[in-house]
């Protein structure tokens, strides 16, 4: 049975995930050692101990994300984050950087190591490297493979595979996208955030409300339109005389439709994106996915997503729409 891995941006979200049926939650420290380095988010040491105890008590695993790339000056911070995680006894560490993984493998060989999506491994030769060098047990796949490619990769993978099931959609291969730092100086790899809020501006312009990132116009909203967050790759731009969402629309990934195929392929876990979202989001999404995974496990042949599931997920999606993303060839 596939494991359900849910986001916990803070203690209320962690409890929401645990209470609604997550098999595992993932979380991070309150600094740039993880890829959701947002103000007001994540865990200090006390809250983290409390969260881990709460999850343990209900039989839910805890994964700690340490998935950014330390530069020389930052190394002590990452090292103490690894040490802290090992002390807390988390069930797995999710890492991306070669140096961090090397340290974990050498210092804490018994600690489960997962390759983060930020590690950017899209093929089984790369996975073999991480398995052989660092004894990585599981890898989270970037959102770039079609369903047949995922099936082929799982069949040849030396490690367990976790894939994204639902949430905000990265259009680019994770871990190798520097669009955010091109515009703001800060990227997921270096700073733990994409399109960081500190560089966002909202301003009334000639054609409506303008949103900018690092001074670059990302979107213009006419009267009556709901303004969204200016994530760089989801803006409207002009190419060849046309103005449109040149890279991707504001939309979320949703793979409910292909759940039986993912299960059949041997995928080990489904990840829900959204540590930056509210506890209400985590409750609703976890509940839907718990029900879906249970149904898929018990009757894969007749499995079909229920309309009420889709209604719940659409409501909490970016732009209130969802896509299969790269899993579906036409999307590419």
């Amino acid at each position: 049975m596939m494991e359900l891995v849910c986001p916990a941006g803070n203690l209320p979200s962690l409890k929401a995930a645990v209470d609604n049926g997550a098999d595992a939650v993932y979380l991070g420290f309150k600094d740039d050692t993880n890829a959701r380095h947002f103000a007001g988010l994540n865990f200090g040491p006390a809250k983290m101990s409390e969260g881990i105890a709460y999850a343990r008590n209900k039989g839910t695993k805890v994964f700690l994300a340490l998935n950014t790339y330390p530069q020389s000056g930052g190394w002590p911070r990452w090292r103490s984050a690894v040490d802290g995680a090992a002390d807390l006894g988390v069930d797995a560490l999710i890492a991306a950087d070669l140096g961090v993984m090397d340290y974990v493998a050498e210092r804490y060989p018994a600690l489960n190591l997962h390759l983060s999506v930020q590690g950017s491994a899209t093929n089984y030769e790369a996975l073999r490297f991480y398995r052989e060098r660092f004894s990585v047990r599981r890898a989270v796949l970037p959102r770039v493979l079609s369903l047949p490619q995922v099936q082929h990769l799982v069949a040849n993978s030396p490690v367990e595979i976790e894939v994204f099931g639902f949430g905000s959609l990265c259009v680019m291969v994770e871990g190798r996208c520097i669009l955010s730092s091109y515009v703001t100086g800060q990227s997921p790899n270096t700073f733990g955030a994409c399109s960081p809020a500190s560089h966002v501006e909202w301003k009334d312009g000639r054609n409506g409300l303008e949103t900018r990132l690092g001074g670059v116009l990302i979107e213009t909203y006419g009267e009556g339109c709901n303004a969204g967050y200016p994530t760089l790759c989801k803006g409207s731009f002009c190419v060849g005389g046309n103005t449109y969402h040149a890279l991707e629309e504001p939309t979320s990934l949703n793979t409910l439709e292909i759940l039986p195929q993912l299960q059949q392929a041997g995928v080990s876990a489904i990840k829900i994106e959204g540590r930056q979202r509210s506890p209400a989001y985590v409750s609703q999404v976890t509940r839907v996915w718990r029900a879906a995974l249970d149904l898929c496990a018990s009757s894969p042949a007749s499995f079909a997503p229920r309309p009420e599931w889709k209604a719940v997920l659409d409501r909490v999606s970016e732009g209130t729409q969802t896509t299969l993303g790269a899993y579906s060839r036409p999307w590419q």
Partner: peptide
Amino acid sequence: LAYSARCFTARAHHLP
């Protein structure tokens, strides 16, 4: 700056 499964040049021409 970035790589994707999607081809943005094809997308600009409404092609898969």
